[in-house]
Amino acid sequence: MQYQWDFAAVWSHFDLLIVGLIGTVELALVSIVLGVIVGFVVALMRLSHRRALRTPATAFVEFYRNTPPIVHFFWFFYALPILIGLSFEPFTAAVLALSTQSGAFYAEVFRGGIVSIERGQWEGAKALGMNYRAVLRRVILPQALRRMVAPFVDRSFELTKTTALASSLAYAELLYQAMQVNSITYRPMEVYTTIAIMYFIVLFAASNLMRLVEYRLARVG
C-alpha cells in the first residue's frame, strides 16, 4: 500500500474549492434566515387555538421530520416546476428545500421554547391587560429565546451539513466543486479528504463559536 499522495494537484485548483466553500456558506445563510421565518410562522400556527391553523402546521412539521432531505431537493427541482409551470435555478430549489425542512425543525425549537415558559408568566402579563402579541413580544420571547439558542445552533449545524446535497442539483457548493476538481485531476483521495477537512474546520469552528456565544448568553441571564 505505497500510495503516493499528491496534494499539489488539488492545491493548483484550490480556487475552485474556495468558490464552492463560498457557495456552501451562502446557501446555508440564506436558508437559515428563511428557515427561521418559516419556523416562526409555523410555530405560532401550531400554538394557535384554531384547528384550521394547527392541523396544517402539524402536518407540515411531521412531513418534513419523517421524509429524507434528498427527496425534498429533487421534489423542488424536478416536481414542483411541473405543478406551477415555472422552472427553478438549482440555488432556488436548494433554498426552498433547505428552508422548508429546517423551518419544520426550527418551528419545534420555537414551540419548545415558548411552551417551556410557565403559565404564570402568561397570566401575570395578561393580568396587566397586555394582549397576545404584547405578552409574546415583551414577556415570553425574551425568556424563551435564551432557551432556544442551543437547539437553534444544533439545527443550523445540521442544515449546514445538509447543504452538501445541493451538489446533486449541480449547484456549485463545496462538494460539487470537489467533484469538478476530481474530474480534472483524478485525485479523489486528495480532493475528498481536503473538502472533508474544510467542512470539518468550518463546522467545528462554527459550532464552538456558537457554544461560546451560548455560554456568554447563559452568563448574562
Partner: peptide
Amino acid sequence: VEIFRNTPVLVQLIWFYYAFPIVLG
C-alpha cells in the same frame, strides 16, 4: 466521533466510494 459528526454524511459516502478504495487497493 468528531470527524463523523462534523462532516456531511454525503461527503462521507462519496469519500468511501471514490477515495477509500485507493488506499484499500
